[in-house]
Amino acid sequence: MFDTLDISSSGLTAQRIRLDTIAQNVANMNTTRDANGKPNPYQRRFAVFATGQVDNPDAPGVHVQSIQLDDKSKFRVKYEPDNPDAGPDGNVRLPNVDMAIEMVNALEASRAYEANVTTMEVTKSMISASLRLLA
C-alpha cells in the first residue's frame, strides 16, 4: 500500500518536469540568439515519457526518458529589416514556439498533476483507515 504513493509521486515528478519544459519554451518565445550570442533561434523542447521508475524500468510508475528538441516544426518568420538578426531579405527567424500549443500542454500537465495528487489523497485515506484497525 505504501509503495502506491511512490507510483503517484513518480507521476507528479514527470508532470512537473513537463511543466518546466513548457515554462522554458514560453520564456524563450522570442529568443533569437543562442547562449553564445550568435543569431540562432531557440528550438522548443518537450519531455518524452516512459513507463517505469528512473532507476528501475520494471517497477510501476512513470518517468521522463528524455527532453527532446523539436527540430521538425518550422521557425516563425517576421519581417523586421531593422532587427540586427534579420537576414538579407529583412526577415527575422523566431523560435518555433506556438503559444496555443504550449498553453494546452500546460493545462494538460497541470490537470494530470492534480489527478496524481488526488490519487495520493485517496491512498492516504485508505492507509489511515487501515491504521485505525489498530486503535
Binding site: D3, S10, G11, A14, F49, P60, V62, T119
Partner: peptide
Amino acid sequence: TAARHKLIAENMANIDVP
C-alpha cells in the same frame, strides 16, 4: 482492493505515456 488501487495509481501516473 489494495492491489487494485495500486494499478489505478499506476494508470493515473501513466496517463500521458504513448
